[in-house]
């Protein structure tokens, strides 16, 4: 499998580390791991270079995950990057909104590395 460059967006630095750790534990080969604590900063990073996969929290200061999604989808060169939302509640209306805006899925906290592996495999297979 090719090495992945991922962007992890969450306003909690602990959460970002947990996501990264579970990606590694899921056996994914990571090339670059970028982090942002809000959607606005993440948007700048997305414009900056090749990213294979994005994990984004929903509730964040400055720019939330939904607005980030909307803006990425309107950004030339970045609109096709698969995005997975991180949420504590799969039934939250915001999650549905994210899916309708083009998020490829979501992982629910607390997630296991197995769940992350499955989700990522699904996204990368299509």
């Amino acid at each position: 499998m090719k090495k992945l460059s991922v962007l992890i967006i969450d306003d909690s630095s602990v959460m970002r580390k947990i996501v990264e750790r579970s990606l590694r534990q899921a056996g994914l080969k990571l090339d670059r791991v970028m982090e942002a604590d809000n959607g606005a900063d993440a948007l700048n990073m997305v414009q900056g270079g090749a990213i294979d996969l994005i994990f984004s929290d929903i509730n964040m200061p400055k720019m939330d995950g939904i607005e980030f999604l909307r803006q990425v989808r309107a950004t030339e060169g970045a609109k096709a990057i698969p995005i997975l939302m991180i949420t504590t509640d799969g039934t939250e209306p915001k999650v549905l909104e994210a899916i309708s805006l083009g998020a490829r899925g979501y992982i629910r906290k607390p997630f296991s590395s197995d769940q992350v592996r499955q989700q990522v495999a699904e996204v990368l297979a299509t």
Partner: peptide
């Protein structure tokens, strides 16, 4: 209110792990 919500939400989300 959103800021307060977000903080509590973050704590809750992380404790699960």
């Amino acid at each position: 209110l959103s800021r307060i919500f977000r903080t509590v939400h973050t704590i809750k989300g992380t404790t699960g792990f």
